[in-house]
């Protein structure tokens, strides 16, 4: 419950405060958000499976974000940033879908 509250508070704060993102970080924010979403879905599935562990969740969340941003950064340096970020989004999207399917089976038994 507190976790859900944290998400809601984060969205509200982001919309109300409208912090200025440094231009250096700007291109990585969308990818980082998608990576974090993937980690959150994975954690939700683990919780439904009964194998959730907060330490693993923290590590996977942070490493997901860092690796996604790193890939995009590297892609930018190599000149294939657009293609690589597309690839990252595709892979993360597939993972999110498979996790969502597992969650669905738990919640709706279908």
């Amino acid at each position: 419950m507190i976790a859900v509250l944290g998400l809601v508070v984060g969205v509200v704060v982001g919309l109300v405060v409208r912090p200025v993102v440094p231009t250096g970080v700007e291109p990585y924010l969308p990818i980082a958000v998608v990576a974090a979403l993937d980690a959150v879905f994975g954690g939700l599935r683990a919780m439904l499976d009964g194998i959730f562990d907060d330490k693993v969740f923290v590590v996977s969340f942070l490493s997901n974000v860092v690796v996604a941003a790193l890939i995009v950064f590297l892609g930018d340096k190599l000149g294939v940033g657009a293609q690589l970020s597309t690839g990252v989004v595709v892979v993360l999207g597939i993972r999110i879908f498979s996790n969502a399917a597992a969650i669905r089976r738990h919640v709706f038994r279908a």
Partner: peptide
């Protein structure tokens, strides 16, 4: 972590 996600 979810707060950070929501913020982003």
């Amino acid at each position: 972590l979810l707060f950070v996600l929501g913020l982003g």
